[in-house]
Write a protein that binds this DNA or RNA. Structure first.
Lengths: 206, 206
DNA sequence: GTCTATAAACCGATAGAC
DNA sequence: GTCTATCGGTTTATAGAC
């Protein structure tokens, strides 16, 4: 019965995938809560409910498991990008992505992508799956930025890089954390406020 | 000769002050470069050129020496605030402070003040000298924000807290680091770009 | 693959001589 | 106050039994 054998193997692989997904869930949440340097593998193991040694059977190192978590997040971002209506104006596409990122951040599931001061950045550079997805996302965003600048909905006088970096940076803006800690606003309020500040600024021209 | 004795004591205290200032310089730079958690006391000692044990004769702990460094930075900020021409419009005063903060950041002397994910935040809360200066600065900024909103130069529809937090957050904006790493802009260019994005946003209305 | 137990390295803080 | 040397605790990663 090759069929049964194949099914059993497939089932085992499914279980493996499920377990690794649970690990990445924990890593993702801990990365968002404490950052890479303060996250310990003991915490991850305890959170998943397995022994630390078992963790290392699935992922080589702390760097690799963090990079894998970030890669999965990038895939989610690309899924959001792919789900956008093609006829939507480029500025609205960009706003939708930033909106998704801030919502993810507020939900406690956004690892600190742009942080020059973390040891994880170097590891990400040498993790091709992540870099590939980052490249795809950057390319797509750059395209929309150019289109929005041509249409005049984004300032043509601003260098594209500045806009691109700002989009990424707002995904981890500590302002969201401060406002959430204050407790005076709902998550939806905070998202709207940050979107407004990011694109319209703070001057009183509205 | 009480005068001579007093002078000698004063000289010794001056030397002490000088040494402690050198320590705070190193801490300040390392905090800006690596953040609190990645900074080690061995590095600080090596950077100052003294033994680690000597470091602990001047400051009780890693937390305290970091808090002292941040307090000194707050004093510098308050000096900048005090040096502003009183007749300057409130929005210009606010911009001047943000400008100073970004310049300090680019010079590698801005520790990561607003970071929910660092162990230093809790230590700062229980370090009265820092909290006092933070309160003074916050009060002054809040005053200017209210005035600017009344004058219509800052959007009256934005909650004051949002503007306040944004001002603090832009002092550590990773966008500045990214642009500096890119090498395509001078520090002065980066400051102007960030000031523009912070206050005018990215939409093409200028 | 999962576990317990442990190795190896690092870091904050201190002891004790000078 | 400054130094060398070291303690105590934590963390990453692995060994070896099952």
């Amino acid at each position: 019965m090759p069929t049964t054998a194949t099914k059993k193997l497939s089932f085992k692989q499914q279980q493996l995938q499920f377990r690794e997904n649970a690990i990445l869930d924990a890593v993702n949440r801990l990365l968002a809560k404490k950052g890479f340097d303060l996250m310990t593998m003991d915490e991850v193991a305890a959170d998943v409910g397995i022994a630390k040694a078992s963790l290392y059977k699935h992922f080589q190192s702390k760097e690799v498991v963090a990079a894998a978590s970030m890669t999965r997040l990038m895939d989610e971002a690309l899924t959001v990008v792919g789900a956008l209506a093609p006829q939507l104006p480029p500025l609205d596409k960009i706003k939708a992505i930033v909106r998704w990122a801030i919502q993810t951040h507020l939900a406690g599931a956004m690892p600190l992508l742009p942080s020059t001061r973390s040891n994880i950045q170097q590891a990400l550079l040498s993790y091709p799956p992540y870099m590939e997805r980052l490249g795809t996302l950057t390319e797509k965003l750059g395209e929309w930025i150019g289109q929005a600048q041509e249409a005049g909905t984004l300032s043509p006088s601003l260098p594209g890089e500045v806009i691109l970096y700002t989009i990424f940076a707002r995904s981890c803006d500590p302002v969201a954390d401060f406002l959430k800690m204050g407790g005076a606003f709902t998550d939806a309020d905070i998202v709207d406020l940050l979107i407004h500040i990011t694109f319209e600024g703070m001057t009183g021209r509205s």
